[in-house]
């Protein structure tokens, strides 16, 4: 084989890669917060007695699940200026990714809500809790703990999906990889390292998540 693998060449770009990792982290964390809050709100809406709230949340989730993230991203990035709304790429990336990930989060939080037996509601009602108090002190904490593991896997997916944000000029890790591969002419090494790093990252996160999950485990 004529080709010599050379990973050394890449070390001169380490600063660039570091900045890419930082940006990926920023995008992902911001999107996580948005998707988590939206996920709870949507899950509540889907369980509510109000038909309109249920419909809106249902439509929201279906549209997001049945269209590609890339199109959603372009829609916000190129479409919003048409309304005179000019937002920087980073904000668009964070918000679009947050909205995108709100759909799966809604689903897992909702199944957490569904898993709660009426017995808990009755027990807290018998103590004198109002519906809101019951929800805040009993139902929500239980369902979030039930949803903890699927939520973390949603968040891992979110980090993987954030790589698509390079298409709107964000120099996160994937954008950096693209640039460096053009400059160094070492695409194979770069994408291989990226593949392995993402995999290791995912593994690390799910390892930690498993450990935490065991500690806060809830048995209904």
């Amino acid at each position: 084989m004529g080709y010599q693998l050379n990973f050394r060449v890449l070390s001169q770009y380490s600063d660039l890669f570091l900045s890419g990792i930082v940006l990926t982290g920023k995008i992902s964390l911001g999107a996580m917060v948005i998707s988590f809050i939206l996920g709870i709100v949507l899950a509540i809406m889907r369980q509510s007695k109000n038909k309109i709230a249920r419909r809106i949340a249902g439509l929201w989730v279906e549209v997001l699940r049945n269209t590609p993230f890339l199109i959603q991203l372009f829609f916000f990035y190129y479409g919003l200026p048409q309304f005179g709304i000019y937002v920087d790429a980073l904000t668009v990336g964070i918000v679009a990714l947050g909205i995108n990930a709100s759909a799966p989060n809604c689903e897992v939080i909702r199944s957490g809500l569904l898993a709660i037996k009426t017995g808990y509601y009755e027990a807290s009602a018998a103590l004198g809790f109002s519906k809101l108090q019951n929800f805040l002190f009993v139902v929500l904490p239980i369902s979030l703990r039930l949803a903890f593991k699927p939520l973390t896997s949603n968040f891992v997916n979110l980090v993987l999906t954030s790589s698509v944000c390079y298409s709107i000029t964000l120099m996160e890790i994937m954008g950096v990889a693209k640039t460096v591969s053009a400059r160094s002419n070492r695409p194979f090494e770069i994408y291989l390292i990226l593949l392995i790093s993402y995999t290791l990252f995912t593994y690390a996160v799910s390892f930690i998540a498993k450990a935490i999950d065991k500690r806060i485990e809830i048995r209904l």
Binding site: G119, A123, A126, L127, V138, P141, I218
Partner: peptide
């Protein structure tokens, strides 16, 4: 608050 209640099925809050 006037009448406390205990049920057949034990329902301690699991969290």
């Amino acid at each position: 608050l006037t009448c406390g209640m205990v049920f057949q099925q034990t329902v301690l809050f699991p969290h």
